[in-house]
Write a protein that binds this DNA or RNA. Structure first.
Lengths: 243, 243
DNA sequence: GTACTCGATTCCGTACTGCGGAACGAGTCC
DNA sequence: GGACTCGTTCCGCAGTACGGAATCGAGTAC
């Protein structure tokens, strides 16, 4: 590597701890460094608040200093705050649950969900990660480059439901359509019996930072509604989001 | 400093960027280091995904690598995930909105909210911070030591609504009662016309990590319901949470 | 169109920072 | 009581990180 070795090592240690608390010897084994090196790095990270020792002479874990810095980019809190009223609007307009998600590697991570007034509900996916190609939000994030689509399509794609698209060429064609229309529909591609429609959310630099979607049981969503009209509604709601 | 200089400098740069995107010269000025040093550190941080350059040759900002590591300690996601079904139960049982919050310094931070089926709704406080003494969740967090109550009561207390308690002695008496009963009611103490009841959520070490509450307009909540019975219901729901 | 300014990047000689093996202390186990 | 493990500390040394200087590119002013 051509970077600053100590900084690279410090982050190797931090990444190790992000998987769970561990001791010096344990971390040293996992990052293939001598214990004294790891101990010195941990001591520095502890002084900076980036790690904390759970008890003297024992295990270390990631500290609040990391969250303080990460808060600058955390899409979670402020994004959820900004978007939630729009999810309420969307749930009311469609009569189905509405949700917010962001890219998380090659997955879509569900950050928030507002339920509809409907008595028959789908489950709440907040906190879940799903492969991007299987849901409308993921397709939106791929089509609008919030997830690198070529890199994504280079891997084998998993079929999760009866209508999951797994052919890269067909998916690319679909992406062009999604970009043109400004929204994506997924009909029983993630789960049999579930449909969803999503549109991208942009920040003040016009960068796509997430997607909102509405989802419901396939038998009633979109049901009698015109799919394109619903899609435009979701895109319009997404367009009203200000971050 | 006795730590690893390069690591200390790298985090000085990161802290600088957590206040907003900046260029090499700007960061160098703020952290009092030569531009070549800052440039090299930024290059390493960029390789690690901890910062990203907004455009080539331009400003840097904190990258998603930080959030990946910080996710290990964020109380938000997994807690929200674990608690949300219980909020649904609580909203259904009380007919009012239910929410989840944690301590954030001397404030209560609302992490999640599930609305009721009621046509007349209160607003959604997700993402908001409020002074602990003014809401039932905060009183619970103070009474059960998730917030240091003596430290808290040493400061002047703000009156936000007509019934906000601001006398430290009266508040201490109330804490004893909250501990004994296992829940707290707040009647128009945060906002006139709003009542809420909260109970503590504990982790597997029996430590209080947050609170759940139900809240509604004072004219109908608790309304005809017995306040103590509702309180016990909230405490029971909180007791069913497993983290 | 040219000159100037400014910011980011690259280069390179050097010194001092970070390294890692060894030793030590504390705790645990048999 | 001895063996083992883990975290911490020490210290001689080598090579990594440093920072000043130079370079390059973009933007602006005249």
């Amino acid at each position: 590597m051509s970077g600053v070795q100590s900084v690279e090592r410090a982050f190797a240690v931090l990444r190790c701890l992000s998987g769970g608390a561990a001791g010096v010897t344990d971390v040293a084994d996992r990052v293939s460094l001598p214990k004294s090196t790891v101990s010195r790095l941990l001591s520095t990270l502890e002084d900076l608040g980036m790690v904390e020792q759970i008890e003297p002479g024992g295990n270390y874990r990631v500290g609040s200093g990391m969250t303080e810095i990460a808060a600058a980019v955390l899409p979670g809190r402020s994004l959820i705050e900004a978007v939630r009223p729009h999810l309420h609007d969307l749930a009311k307009a469609t009569g189905e649950a509405a949700g917010l998600s962001i890219a998380d590697g090659f997955d879509v991570l569900y950050l928030d969900q507002v339920d509809s007034d409907n008595q028959v509900q789908t489950r709440d996916w907040t906190g879940e990660r799903v492969p991007a190609h299987t849901v409308s939000s993921g397709q939106v994030l791929l089509a609008f480059d919030a997830i690198d689509s070529e890199e994504y399509l280079a891997q084998p794609l998993e079929r999760l439901a009866s209508h999951t698209l797994t052919d890269a060429t067909a998916i690319r064609t679909r992406f062009a359509e999604i970009v043109a229309k400004g929204y994506a529909w997924a009909f029983e591609e993630f789960l049999d019996g579930l449909s969803s429609v999503a549109a991208p959310i942009r920040d003040s630099s016009n960068r796509v930072v997430g997607a909102i979607h509405a989802h419901g049981p396939a038998y009633r969503f979109p049901g009698d509604l015109d799919a394109d009209e619903v899609g435009r509604m979701v895109a319009a709601t997404a367009g009203r989001v200000r971050i």
